[in-house]
Design a protein around this nucleic acid. Structure first.
Lengths: 354, 354
DNA sequence: TTTATGTTGTAAATCGTTTTTTGGGAGAAA
DNA sequence: TTTCTCCCAAAAAACGATTTACAACATAAA
């Protein structure tokens, strides 16, 4: 039962002084008790703890952090909470945070470079221990961050040549491997849905596709359809393609909203997925594993990304002056039935270093 | 180009003193310039701004907030970033925050009451202006919060009789309306997938279903299948039901993972959705609108929930001593084709106050 | 010239902690 | 008894900002 009367001012929370006064000791002594720098089982210790309980005292984190000039908070700026891949990454990073006694505060830039810049500024203002950034489209984060004292690690949409730390996946290799899988399954007419708009990420995936096509000896026919980033846009772009071209053997979508658009569109037009037409997408989602037939996906190993990124950031926080580096992690292919009749039994999932 | 040499100590960020020294003025004066309490277009103003740029000065938010004893941060504790409904709510709340010059920091409890308690404690320690909580399963948040100075508003999983502010939807009415819709479409054998586990939320939905069944004159046969909260669990439970019972006319899932499980299972077993078997779910997801046929959903209007909740929290922050209240918002029904042959043309979506 | 009025920058106090310094008392050794 | 440690709590300084009180100066009015 907090005893409001003992506080100096009504409406404001009790401070360490109020506790000290009530316990009949000095503020410094209270601080020692609270932070365990003093044994608690004597009269003074007990009196302090009792006063803390009586007043409902909670330490003011801002004052505490200000004094010791450190915080155990890691900022996280992502483009969008509603993208399941980002959400999964947030969850995995939180898990790492818990294990190392840090905590994550997450904010989103809503794919807006200005908002992103503001969020980063704000986090730096809070003197967080470090920051993870998944850059927005047209992000200026990399430049903003170069001069900063605060350690930054970029995730997912990273630039190979940047003077910052980055952790992402090997997009090109994964895409190339998937294309090879489609070739092996006998697919020859393949449609690739790409963004058509500058995320480094998707551009790398496209490069991987092109590399696989060039490397493949036999004749294949690959069409590239730019879709924009909304589901509706992707659906419209793919519909227009299907209207004017013979039906493809396979559709490969380079990002997750396009995969959903393609799935619905093929269903609607009566293509039997995994039989008439194969379907695969970059990025996994819950629905892809659970519809019938399940849709094959290139899975970004978020757990591993989170682990590696966390290591990197911690190293920076603890003052490692190692040069910045870009780390690439291999994707995993969930070769589900939507791929169509493969040499290996349908439905078996194989692990492939990308 | 930050001039490190001018700072007192290497490695630490410049303080307002460093700026003042460099500009040849007092710290108070710098503060005035930075916060716009002084016109900037005279020599002193310019000198200060130049010094700020030279040193790469950023105001220390902790020190600033400590002194003015206020912050414009709103905490948000959700059970899980990977639940699309929560993700949408976060996004909408962030949007409100932006409009009112607050900012949101989001953390998740991973459905763990202990973690939730820690997160709340931590936010209170940061002296955030207010907190939104979507309670975890078995949450103790309501009790924790009653004594607190900090304003709290609970979202989504709210208790009618709690002594706290809460904003949620009218679960019972929405479920009842959907059941009525199924009856109207001529469905008689209906399976309802519920959680079977104590979220107030889903229990209310179940009540709504029961009420609709009781209110319906004609004979209907409704079976209730408890599913647990994982997709796999839901799939197994529904599969077991289908194995041992005649095929239902309709399946109604009271939460979103069950809807996906039911969709995949029905597809796999060759039920044609919207024809052999109707399907509907509480909570909308992207996949539901885009598969074919699209799956009907009860939509929680997150935009409106966010707006109302924000109003409520702001009122509390600004010191309104109004008694706490529980606000219910009506859901909207997206009556998509999966509902089966209705009286109204299939595919039309109708708005129904729940 | 004197007085009233406003402006503006400096010095100092303050926010709530933690940390360092100081000082006093207890106990042991000489 | 005196001296030397050791221990522990009180007092004071510090963290980096904002804000109040105050002094200095300019300008306008009398």
């Amino acid at each position: 039962m907090p005893d409001k009367a003992a506080q100096k001012q009504r409406g404001s929370r009790p401070s360490i002084r109020d506790v000290a006064r009530r316990a009949g000791v000095s503020p410094g002594c209270v601080s020692n008790v609270i932070n365990g720098r003093r044994k608690l089982d004597d009269p003074i210790g007990r009196a302090v703890l009792q006063a803390v309980r009586d007043l409902g005292y909670r330490r003011n984190t801002m004052a505490s952090n200000l004094r010791r000039s450190q915080s155990r908070i890691i900022g996280l700026v992502i483009p969008d909470f509603e993208n399941p891949f980002f959400a999964e990454l947030v969850a995995k990073l939180e898990h790492r945070a818990e294990a190392t006694n840090y905590r994550i505060v997450a904010t989103s830039s809503r794919e807006d470079a200005d908002i992103e810049a503001r969020e980063i500024d704000e986090l730096v203002g809070w003197r967080v221990a470090g920051v993870f950034v998944i850059p927005s489209l047209y992000s200026r984060a990399a430049e903003l961050v170069e001069a900063s004292e605060t350690p930054f690690v970029f995730l997912d949409r990273i630039q190979q040549n940047a003077a910052t730390d980055g952790v992402g996946v090997d997009n090109a290799a994964a895409s190339a491997a998937l294309m090879q899988k489609l070739f092996d399954a006998g697919h020859r007419r393949i449609v690739v849905a790409y963004l058509g708009d500058g995320i480094a990420n998707v551009a790398e995936r496209l490069d991987g596709v092109r590399a696989a096509v060039n490397a493949h000896a036999a004749k294949v026919l690959v069409d590239y359809v730019p879709t924009g980033d909304s589901i509706e846009g992707a659906r419209a772009a793919l519909a227009a393609y299907l209207d004017e071209n013979p039906p493809p053997d396979a559709v490969f979508c380079l990002f997750n909203t396009a995969t959903l658009a393609a799935y619905g569109l093929l269903q609607e037009r009566g293509h039997v997925i995994g039989k008439d037409t194969a379907l695969a997408g970059f990025d996994d989602s819950a629905w892809m594993a659970h519809v019938h037939p399940p849709v094959a996906a290139i899975v970004q190993p978020t757990e591993e990304i989170a682990r590696v990124a966390w290591e990197r950031l911690l190293a920076r926080i603890e003052g490692g002056d190692t040069p910045s580096e870009t780390i690439r992690i291999n994707c995993r292919l969930e070769a589900r039935e939507s791929l169509g009749p493969l040499a290996e039994p349908a439905g078996a999932s194989s692990r492939t270093g990308a």
